[in-house]
């Protein structure tokens, strides 16, 4: 509605210096739109504080023994301290023999053996004592498998790069982080282009931002698919072999934080697409670019949140 000017120029709030000194300030003009978007970002800070803060304290309060290389998360480990795990590195030439050996253990569920084999090279069969583990290991070895016997290792939180407890693919996500940073750069270049009146360049950079943002999202969807459905993980990660939100507190935090961030990225891509279409139709000029600037602020904020999430969820 035209009653509410979006490009009004006025002195900044709370800045007495501008009002008293006639010297032109280097500050950008204050518009209602900018005040509102920064307020919105402040509310977003609080929203992610709720999520990230919960993650921080839940993680810090997670006791040693909540995760282990052999048992599913939060298994009570009393009486299991001397456990050994038989880690199936390779099943060798004859799959059916291995299955037979494993089936002779798991008489309760028919797909248990498949689950362990699917998780190779990290199929874990926990055993309560060293003798049992060695017996199982030699049975498997004689069936042609490559196995190792590992002692019980406990963790407060799944350690990055440890395949027994942490399923996250850091290489992929590091690349994806770089992708999102690139989209932030193209975004700011789009703004810079339109500020100099270069509409074509602005449209191109906006298009690049939408495309790169979509790539980020696609990679995230791919990652989720791998984690939740495609890949099989050892028992230290999930009781049923899939890394799903319900399998551990770590999984809950991971999916909630990255998922809600993903929703924000999706919203950003949608908003940017609208801006892109407007830009194609020549809606912006060197004196009228508020929509690009405001969407950009949101987009950079989403990027900023990802920088933090990548560090604390994947790398730490």
């Amino acid at each position: 509605m035209a009653l509410a000017p979006t490009d009004a120029v006025g002195p900044k709030p709370g800045s007495a210096g501008v009002r008293h000194a006639p010297v032109p300030s280097h500050s950008a003009p204050v518009t209602p739109g900018k005040v509102a978007i920064w307020l919105f970002l402040a509310t977003e800070v609080m929203f992610f504080t709720g999520l990230i803060g919960s993650y921080i304290v839940l993680r810090a309060g997670s006791p040693r023994g909540a995760y282990s290389n052999l048992y599913p998360p939060n298994t009570p480990l009393r009486g299991l301290e001397n456990s050994r795990g038989v880690v199936l590195r390779s099943i060798g030439p004859d799959r059916s023999k291995i299955e037979e050996v494993l089936r002779s253990l798991g008489d309760r569920k028919p797909d248990e053996a498949e689950q362990v084999i699917a998780a190779v090279p990290h199929g874990v069969v926990p055993a309560r004592s060293a003798e049992r583990a060695e017996a199982l290991a030699s049975a498997l070895r004689s069936a042609g498998a490559v196995v190792e016997v590992e002692p019980l290792k406990t963790f407060e939180w799944p350690k990055p790069y440890d395949d027994a407890v942490n399923p996250l693919a850091i290489n992929l996500t590091a690349a994806n982080t770089f992708v999102l940073i690139c989209s932030s750069v193209t975004m700011v270049l789009a703004l810079s282009a339109i500020q100099r009146g270069n509409r074509a360049k602005c449209t191109l950079f906006l298009l690049a931002t939408v495309v790169i943002g979509s790539i980020f999202l696609s990679v995230q969807v791919f990652e989720y698919r791998q984690l939740m459905f495609e890949h099989h993980y050892p028992s230290g990660i999930s009781a049923n072999g899939h890394f799903v939100p319900s399998c551990s507190l770590f999984a809950s935090c991971f999916f909630t934080m990255t998922g809600l961030h993903g929703l924000h990225v999706t919203a950003g891509v949608l908003a940017l697409s609208v801006v892109l279409i407007a830009s194609i139709f020549g809606a912006f000029s060197a004196s009228n670019y508020a929509a690009i600037e405001l969407t950009g602020l949101y987009w950079h904020f989403v990027d900023l949140v990802w920088i933090i999430l990548f560090t604390i969820v994947y790398l730490l």
Binding site: Y71, P72, T75, V86, L102, S104, L105, G106, D107, R108, K109, E112, Q115, V116, V124, V125, P126, A127, R128, R132, A133, A135, L136, A139, S235, A239
Partner: peptide
Amino acid sequence: MARRIPMLATDRPA
């Protein structure tokens, strides 16, 4: 325990 940890090679023949 066995229900929660299917592959636990506990009291089963190894």
